[in-house]
Structures are given as C-alpha cells and as structure tokens.
Amino acid sequence: MILQIIADGLIVGSTIALGAIGLTMTYSLLRFANFAHGEFIAWGAYLALTFLGFFIALGGGGAMAPLGPFSFGWQLLAALVAGAIATAILALVLDWLLFDRLSAQGSAIVLTIASFGAALALRNFLQFVYGTLPAYYTRELQIAIHIVPRDVGGGLRATPDQLFVLALALVLVVGLHLFLQRTTAGRAMRAVAHNPALARVTGIDVASVVRWTWILGAILAAVAGTFAGLVGQLRPQIGFDLLLPLFAAAILGGIGSVPGAVIGGLIVGLAESAAVPLIGAEYRAAAAFGVLIAILLVRPQGLFAERAK
C-alpha cells in the first residue's frame, strides 16, 4: 500500500514538477505570479489531441498502432512535439498582446490581475472550441505491471505509460538543469532572473531571454498537460486543477529554483496521494493548499531559494 502511494505520488508529482518549472521560471524572470500558466497546460494537452488526429489521418487513418508496451504510437510523440510548439506560440502571442505591454507600464500586480483574466478567457475559449466532455488520446487498454510483488510493502503496480511519463519527465528535468547550468542561454536566464538591470549592462538582450523563457515554460507546460491527459483524461479544467499544486510546488521549492520546483512538485504529488487514504479522495486537491499554507507559515522563502544576495 505504502509503496503504491509513493509511486502514484511520484507520477502525479512529475507532472506537477514539469508545470512548476515553467511557472517558477516565468515567476522569477518576469516577477509576477502567472495564473494563466495552468491554461498553457490545458491548451498544450488539447492542441496535442488535435495534432494527434492530424497525424493519425496522415498515417492513413484508423487506429494508432501502439509502440511496444505503450498505449500510444509514434503519432502521439509527434503530436506532443507539435502541441508544445503551438503552445509556445500561444504564450508568445499572449506576452506580446498583454504582458509585455503591461510590464512596460510598471506594476507587477497588474500583470497578475491580467493573467487571472487571461486564464479565464483562455480556459473558456478552450471549452468553446473543444466542448466540456472528457477526451482521450487513446482508448487502448493498459495492463499494470507488477514491479514489486504484493508481499513487499503492499506491492507496486504501474502501467507502461506511467513509467514512460516518469522517465521522460526525468530526462527533461536533467536536460533543463544542464541547460541552465552549462549553456550561455541558460546562464543568461539565471542572470536576468537575478538582476535584469545588471544583465542588460552585461550585454544580455533581456527581451530575448524573456521570450525564450516563455517558450521553455510553455513547452514544459504542454508536456505536463499531455502527460496528465495520457495517464488520466483530458478535461478543460485540467490546467485550472493543476494551478494550486503548481504554485504550492514553486513556492515550496523557492521561486526561481528549478531543482526546487522539481522537489516541490514531487512533495506536493506525494502529499496528494497520501491525502487520499487520510482525508478521502474528494479532498485530494486540498493537500496542495495544506502544503502551501505550511510553507508560507514556516519557510516562505522556500526550500531552495536561488535569490541569494
């Protein structure tokens, strides 16, 4: 039982972590809490659905031939990439239309209000386009494999799709970490997050770094959304429901810290899955709020704040 709770928590947590990374990066670079980030997740998931249909039609229609043990074929991977690119474009357009103009006017909190409005508009537009019924990438049934037999810690079962999600999330996180630590573009992002004025006099084109941050954040959000849709189902509220866990994870990890967002995401995921036997599945979503309030009261700067002075 306990092993299964941990495994479920890690799978949910890896989705939260991917979303929280994007959130923490835009938060620390652009200096506002972007409530529209959840909608990038939802749009990413649904855009992937649209592209999936396109790629399946391209391959002659019919059903998608699964890859190995997974429930999906190459078409979903292609759709994941295309959906992520389209979501990045969506984020850039939103920045150009709204956030960039507002940040020229000054106050960060006005950006937060605007993002709240943008979130509702985006979510409802999504509902307008796709309707409110749940959707699925694939109807293929998945059989959970026994990874740990039942007599050890209650046993552990996971579907191949879940393991795929976990593995790809891990690859993305490690890749992103290396990108931020080793490459010029990644270091420039950290530099801008730390001190935009100093970044400018150092010769960094802050506007371009901001654009790349939107792109990266949106890509990770789209991947998170597609993962959530793959191991669960697609609903228009998929992004809204993740928003509170994302914020909890980002603050728990310390705003601006990518490793922090990952660990925060995993902790929130674990808290959610542990909440199910403790307070009931219907209150699962309250676990993130509990984590959030606890961290605000005990250590508001988060576990790994990067903004060391």
Partner: peptide, 15 residues
C-alpha cells in the same frame, strides 16, 4: 510578498 496573498486566496477559494 504581495503575490503570495494572491496565491493563498486562490487556494482558499479552491478549498
């Protein structure tokens, strides 16, 4: 920070 209030109030509304 003022935006933490925004997030906390968002959370309480969800709860």
């Amino acid at each position: 920070r003022h935006d933490y209030l925004a997030i906390a109030t968002f959370g309480i509304a969800v709860v």
